[in-house]
Amino acid sequence: MSQTSERIREPSVLDRVDDRIKVLCVVAFVAAVALLPDGAWTRFGALAGLLLLAYLLGRVPLLWALKRLPLLLPVFLLVGLSAWISSRGESGMGTDRFLSVLVGASMSLLALALMAYNPGPDNMLRALQFYFRGSFLVTLLTMTHRYIVVIVAEARRMLRARDSRGQPPRVLDRARVAGSMVGYLFVRSLQRAERVGHAMEARGFTGVYPRGRVRPLRWTQLAAGLTFCAAMAAVVVIP
């Protein structure tokens, strides 16, 4: 859970950009990557260069981000297989499509990793609160992110206790043990949910997240963000 740890990092150029604008830019970037035609390698290259520049400007550890890429392996396998078969057949996807998925999915993942590093999950969620004011779903996301840390820690303690006692020989029993742990985790989570609910009510919670001070978005920042979005749109539209 290294993404959520409190990182003490040197301020970089990226920190001069409003978090809300950074979130907007990453969304525009990911959308552009997803919309490029297959095999538009010049444009893929331009966007990749832009991403690399952001990593350098933000002094984001590239190695840390690259370690997230294996998440994509099963899908690459599937796409590769499909492409290989299609290349023998007459219809379906070819090499260009396959490579575009490979490159595009990786770039998109790296852009999201960048956002998880700077501005980071908490500021990202705050930006979402700004864009979707009063949204119940965003309130839910913010609280979920807070309690993932707590409940994952609880799950890890249970897993450690189980693994220290070894696994039953039969797969069926192993599944049953895992299921019981999940059930136990549910009961504990339910109790925690009740206590959290009490603590929130005790401080006057009425079901709506109280709105804090909303920092106005500076127009220079907004203009820069919109320009970036326009540039992304242009990359997609202009061949």
Binding site: L125, M143, R146, V150, R192, R195, V196, G204, P210, G212
Partner: peptide
């Protein structure tokens, strides 16, 4: 951990007064 449910200490302390 049941009492502190917001992302930062300031937001958490401000939760009651804002309500």
């Amino acid at each position: 951990d049941d009492q502190l449910f917001m992302a930062t200490v300031a937001e958490d302390v401000a939760f009651g007064p804002r309500n």
